[in-house]
Amino acid sequence: MNSQWAIPQLSWRFRHIWQRNSLVWRKLAIPSMLGNLADPLLYMLGLGYGLGRMLETVDGISYIGFLASGIICSSTMMSASFETMYSGFSRMHIQKTWETLLNAPLTLDDVVLGELIWAASKSFLSGCAVLIVATALGLVPSWLAVIVLPVILLTGLAFSSLGLIMTALSPSYDFFMYYFTLGVTPMMLLCGVFFPLEQLPLFAQQLAQCLPLTHAVSLVRPLVHGMVPTHYFLNIAVLSLYTVIGFYLALACTRRRLLQ
């Protein structure tokens, strides 16, 4: 049962972990939300208006409108990564919160699933906040943008799964810098957040097709402008695979770390 690669035992008990984390978050919700929103908005407004002045349109839309849909995705990625890695590591390793959960009638599978759903929920709020601001600025012309909401959630799940793998492998907070430098920052630049993929050399475009953020952007950008994404099935499948395989790997690594 405790074997590292055993099939995950999913249970509604994960809600206890979710509820605990949300109670902590609620105590600091407003500063936390504003903090999470400041960074993406600075990028969106700074680059959008500054750089946007110099460009006519990008792919037929204003640059800030183009950028907004990318920032919705990157903000979701950032929020999920920070929550699973820095906050998750603190709960696992520093505060021994996970140890407390395991002394109660909860399992490690419950804990990792609870952390996944929690981080995805929190990053969902971050993505939605950017979407709401973009809507208020008149950058979201279509009602089809409502379908962006489940896409944000799926994006949050995918990046939370990846973050939880890092948390399970990390000896200390310093380790997360590697993931940000080698994973998150390249994705910010390669996955079509700031400029269309087609601007990249072919090999970089092919590499980008393997990265989850590309597929999130490929879904969100057309939806925001009232179009159905061309390869939506592929995009959804890639994000789902990152979620499912990432969760399984995260759980296996966490089991090896904590249950041996």
Binding site: L23, V24, T97
Partner: peptide
């Protein structure tokens, strides 16, 4: 537990 694992946020 050997080391207190009380929740500092609560």
């Amino acid at each position: 537990p050997q080391f207190d694992s009380l929740d500092p946020d609560f």
